[in-house]
Every structure is written in structure tokens, then in C-alpha cells.
């Protein structure tokens, strides 16, 4: 699945993967969790604005990881980043 944003300036590509049923809540059709959603952005944007653009609310309640590292929704995205967005779970 690929989504294009209006592009101005140097374009970057980011892949966002939604888990924990978030894809269903966002109404993403034919969503494949292995591929996620590839988006093109006009330069380095903050993740939060991208997630809000998808329709997510209260972004801070999600667990967000970039390349195995937990990041804040305020982090700036880089070209070729792969971001995973999940609901928090526990151990057991």
C-alpha cells in the first residue's frame, strides 16, 4: 500500500506499520502488516503530524518504534525509516 502526500522540496520515503488492530480502526483496506504503508513526505516531518494525518488521535498512548528503538511521536522522520505503531501490551 502506498500513499502520496503533496510533495515540495526534497522528498523522503517512510514505511509505517500499524499493528494491534490500528489498521482496522483507521479503515485501511487490504492492509498487509508485513509491508505496512509507504508514504512520501516533503522533507523531514515530525512523526506526530503524519500519524494525525492518518486519523490517529491521542498519539502519545501508542508505542512507537523506529528500527528497534522506542521513539517519541515528536521525532523527526528520516529517509527510509521504518516505523511501527502499536497499542501497549503487558508481559506474560
Amino acid at each position: 500500500m502506498s500513499i502520496g502526500f503533496d510533495v515540495m522540496g526534497k522528498e523522503i520515503k517512510v514505511r509505517i506499520k500499524f499493528f494491534s488492530g490500528i489498521d482496522k480502526e483507521l479503515g485501511l483496506l487490504n492492509y498487509n502488516p508485513a509491508e505496512g504503508v509507504e508514504i512520501k513526505l516533503p522533507g523531514r516531518k515530525r512523526l506526530r503530524s503524519v500519524l494525525v494525518g492518518f486519523g490517529l488521535k491521542k498519539v502519545s498512548r501508542f508505542a512507537i518504534f523506529r528500527n528497534g528503538e522506542r521513539i517519541s511521536a515528536w521525532a523527526k522522520l528520516n529517509d527510509n525509516d521504518e516505523v511501527s505503531c502499536l497499542k501497549v501490551s503487558g508481559g506474560g
Partner: peptide, 13 residues
């Protein structure tokens, strides 16, 4: 999702 809710989370982490 049961305790397997942890699979994707552990994988991402």
C-alpha cells in the same frame, strides 16, 4: 488478542 498481543510489540522493540 490474548498474550500474543506481545508478539508484534516484542518484535518492534
Amino acid at each position: 488478542f490474548g498474550t500474543n498481543a506481545n508478539v508484534n510489540l516484542s518484535n518492534a522493540a
